[in-house]
């Protein structure tokens, strides 16, 4: 049983297009246990209800940005250890540094190809 069959992922992005694209890319990698959330608060709600191994989140979202979401996840007793992959518009040094201090597991800069996403995910969870 490969990792990809069991890996549970939550995709967080305020744009449904991005959620669709990432879900589609994950599907292409054979990762099918994917749920989605449109903003930070519903992402937190979702992981509380059904835990995941990995959260893939956009940085730039209204209300709670990706790193604020990461911070809340790290503060939650049950979610502190969850894998976190940040999607950024550009590799802004300041954002990356903030992420590092919050134990962000990896980041990927837009635009990316499904293969880039796979590499970024595998760097966190191991070979899919």
């Amino acid at each position: 049983m490969a990792l990809r069959d069991q890996l549970r992922v939550l995709v967080v992005d305020d744009m449904s297009t991005s959620r669709g694209l990432i879900t589609q890319a994950l599907d292409g990698m054979g990762v099918s246990h994917v749920s989605t959330a449109a903003d930070g608060p519903s992402a937190l709600e979702s992981v509380a209800r059904s835990p995941v191994h990995l959260v893939i989140s956009d940085f730039n979202m209204p209300g709670m940005d990706g790193l604020q979401l990461l911070q809340s996840l790290r503060q939650g007793a049950k979610t502190a250890g969850v894998g976190f992959l940040l999607i950024t518009g550009r590799a802004d040094k300041e954002i990356i540094e903030r992420g590092r201090s919050l134990r962000m597991n990896n980041y990927i800069a837009k635009p990316f190809q499904p293969a880039d996403l796979k590499t970024a995910i595998e760097a966190i969870v191991g070979r899919l």
């Binding site: 890996l7 250890g81 990356i96 992420g99 597991n105 760097a123 966190i124």
Partner: peptide
Amino acid sequence: PEPEVDFQPMGIAIDLPDLDLPDLD
């Protein structure tokens, strides 16, 4: 293109046989 930022990805261990979700205790 963005300046290179030095970032080392951090892996997490997923124990497959136990399907060890981080918070299923």
